[in-house]
């Protein structure tokens, strides 16, 4: 049995009286990849921050293994342009040696950007730099908040491959937040669909048999098919919130 790293038990969180996380329980095991999906405003980032310990829940328990080392890749960071800081220095803030930083930058294919001011990196380069900082601490739990946001499908495959091989080499648990409701990384062990409460969870379907799918998406993306107990509009916002109620096929109580 792989090591249990973190559990959440019946977590509730509200902001300004509005519930954002409602009765969520989950556990993260070493070596397992979990993808957290859900529509906009479903509380994915809030749940990720509760897992990280950045937000205290109103009620419920967060238990961590004493050996836990968390690496965190935020969705985005904004560093004021007046702060003169190179990409290398940014990585060194994770308490890592210069050699270790150079190595990890090279492994991310951005070794040539070590001296570049971090504010000058492109979106994709910055994501790699953030991932580099997250893994510098040799974490056993890697939390990635929308790591493929704004990256095209090829870049997405490359990033998924990188995350997958990192997860293997570090033997760490991965929690990945994704805004995409249907396409998740094929290596995912567990998909959790969040809509304030956990509305469903399971394994993504492998679709590698279908050559047309592989043509379009490559091998690293899989379709997660699931039935929502709510509807979305084109922006991923939940429609008709007032009539939303738990149905029988919701696998929680």
């Amino acid at each position: 049995m792989s090591k249990l790293l973190l559990t959440l038990e019946t977590i509730h969180k509200a902001f300004g009286g509005k519930p954002v996380i409602d009765n969520v329980s989950l556990s993260l095991h070493q070596g397992e990849i979990t993808t957290l999906i859900g529509p906009n405003g479903a509380g994915k980032s809030t749940l990720a921050k509760i897992i990280l310990g950045l937000i205290k829940p109103d009620s419920g328990l967060r238990k961590t293994n004493p050996d836990i080392r968390i690496g965190y890749m935020p969705q985005k960071i904004t560093i004021d342009p007046t702060l003169p800081i190179s990409t290398l220095r940014f990585l060194q803030l994770a308490n890592a040696s210069q050699t270790a930083c150079h190595e990890v930058l090279k492994s991310m294919d951005i070794g040539h950007l070590a001296k570049t001011p971090i504010q000058n990196l492109s979106g994709g380069e910055l994501q790699r730099a953030l991932l580099a900082r997250a893994i510098l601490r040799k974490p056993n739990l890697l939390v990635l908040d929308e790591p493929v946001q704004g990256v095209d499908i090829n870049g997405q495959n490359a990033l998924y491959q990188m995350i997958n091989s990192l997860a293997k080499s570090l033997n760490c648990a991965v929690l990945m937040v994704s805004h995409d409701l249907h396409l998740v990384m094929s290596a995912t062990d567990q998909v959790i669909c969040l809509n304030r409460h956990i509305c469903c969870q399971g394994h993504p379907e492998q679709v590698t048999q279908d050559p047309a799918f592989i043509d379009i998406f490559g091998h690293t993306t899989a379709i997660y098919s699931h039935h929502h107990d709510h509807d979305h509009n084109l922006h991923g916002e939940i429609l008709d919130e007032t009539t939303h109620a738990h149905r029988d096929d919701c696998d929680h109580d």
Binding site: K49, L52, G53, L54, I70, Y72, P74, I77, I79, L83, I85, F90, L93, A94, N95, R133, R137
Partner: peptide, 17 residues
């Protein structure tokens, strides 16, 4: 100094670390 630079760059990353 080091902590001040760290929270100035990104306070959440600093907190997690």
């Amino acid at each position: 100094w080091k902590q001040l630079i760290n929270i100035t760059v990104d306070s959440e990353l600093a907190a997690v670390e």
